[in-house]
Structures are given as structure tokens and as C-alpha cells.
């Protein structure tokens, strides 16, 4: 009898692995990019279809190979976002890893996004937050008058984790002392 070979989508997926001589990261990550079409409603479906995965990496060197070729957030125009999430987590509230979570949001005056984004993602990739597996990913959102960076975590009810993320953000971003930081749960954002 002929045997049918089933390829599950799970096994078909490409998982990034560190190359020989490269420095592995604690987690694999994926870069995503999204750009909102002006005038379109931001429904879940249009959000998902607007978001494009750029690629995944597993080592420090692979990260730089992506990042060095990417446009800096400060040079983006229009309503655009870069997302850097752990491989397997979609940068959406609806993802299982995110649905009970929340995010720290920092609004930045124009001109600061590129430097802050780089410092944020280097801290995340280097495991500087020290909150176990709580971090899901980070986003930089380029808007008309200001830019926004955010870092998402799994458990919005975990006060110790949220405090630790905030303190690490203050340290690694070297923000002006009057910078306002706001924590939002994703269930609040949906409302």
C-alpha cells in the first residue's frame, strides 16, 4: 500500500537556527512591518492583512544581517510600524501569548525613535529585562506628530514583572526625566 506523507504546517514552518560560530540568542525572534492604508478602517482583518513578516533569526549575527538592511524608524514616512516578536508570536492582541497581556507605551517627540528603538530591541535580545519568559515583543510606531515605542508582556496582572520592565526601560532608554510611561492591558486597548 502506498503511504501518504503528511506535512503538518507546524513542521513545514522554517525555524531559524544559529549558524556556526554565531552567538545564539535566548529566543528566536521575527521582524514584522505594517503600514496603514489611509482612510481604511482598522479592523482586525485589515490589521492582519497589512502586517508582513520580514524574517526570523536565532543569533546576534543574524539579527544584524536583518537590522543593518532595514530603514531606520526615524526615516519612515506615514503610518508605519516595525514589530519584533518572539518567533511564533504574532504581534496582535489575539495571539494566545498576548491575550492576557499588556504593554508599556512611551511617546517620543520626533527625532528620538531610531535611537530608542535600537536601545529597546538590544535590551530585549540581550535578555536585560530579567522577567523570565514574560516578554512577547516590541513595537515602534511612526505617526504624524510623535512616535511611540512599546514593549509587550504576557501577563498584565503580574505587578512585579510590570514594575521590573518599567525600571529596565528607564535604564536602557536613557529617557528625558519628564518622559511619561503608560501601561495598558490589551483588554483595555480592545475597548
Amino acid at each position: 500500500a502506498k503511504k501518504k506523507v503528511c506535512v503538518s504546517p507546524k513542521y513545514n514552518a522554517t525555524i531559524a537556527v544559529p549558524g556556526v560560530g554565531e552567538h545564539p540568542l535566548q529566543y528566536n525572534y521575527s521582524f514584522w512591518y505594517s503600514r496603514r492604508t489611509p482612510g481604511r478602517p482598522a479592523s482586525t482583518q485589515s490589521y492582519e492583512s497589512n502586517i508582513k513578516q520580514i524574517g526570523s533569526f536565532a543569533s546576534v549575527e543574524q539579527f544584524w544581517r536583518f537590522y543593518s538592511h532595514m530603514i531606520r524608524p526615524g526615516d519612515l514616512t506615514g503610518h508605519s510600524d516595525f514589530h519584533l516578536f518572539k518567533e511564533g508570536i504574532k504581534p496582535m492582541w489575539e495571539d494566545d501569548a498576548n491575550k492576557l497581556g499588556g504593554k508599556w507605551i512611551i511617546r517620543l517627540r520626533k527625532g528620538l525613535a531610531s535611537r530608542c528603538w535600537e536601545n529597546l530591541i538590544l535590551a530585549m535580545l540581550g535578555e536585560q529585562f530579567m522577567v523570565g519568559g514574560e516578554i512577547c515583543g516590541a513595537v515602534v510606531s511612526v505617526r504624524f506628530q510623535e512616535d511611540i515605542i512599546s514593549i509587550w508582556n504576557k501577563t498584565a496582572s503580574d505587578q512585579a514583572t510590570i514594575t521590573r520592565i518599567r525600571d529596565t526601560l528607564r535604564r536602557v532608554l536613557n529617557l528625558p526625566p519628564n518622559t511619561i510611561m503608560e501601561y495598558k492591558t490589551h483588554t483595555d486597548s480592545i475597548k
Binding site: 554565531e22 546576534v60 549575527e61 544581517r65 538590544l122
Partner: peptide
């Protein structure tokens, strides 16, 4: 368990490695 921690300075140094190009 053990976690792989890198500081900013080390990550930036890796950028100039031939493997990062």
C-alpha cells in the same frame, strides 16, 4: 535555567563581525 544575556556593548561589537554581513 541558564539564560543567555548580552549587554548593549557586546551586541554592538558583534555588528562588525564578518558573520553579521
Amino acid at each position: 535555567g541558564t539564560r543567555i544575556i548580552y549587554d548593549r556593548k557586546f551586541l554592538l561589537e558583534c555588528r562588525s563581525s564578518p558573520l553579521a554581513r
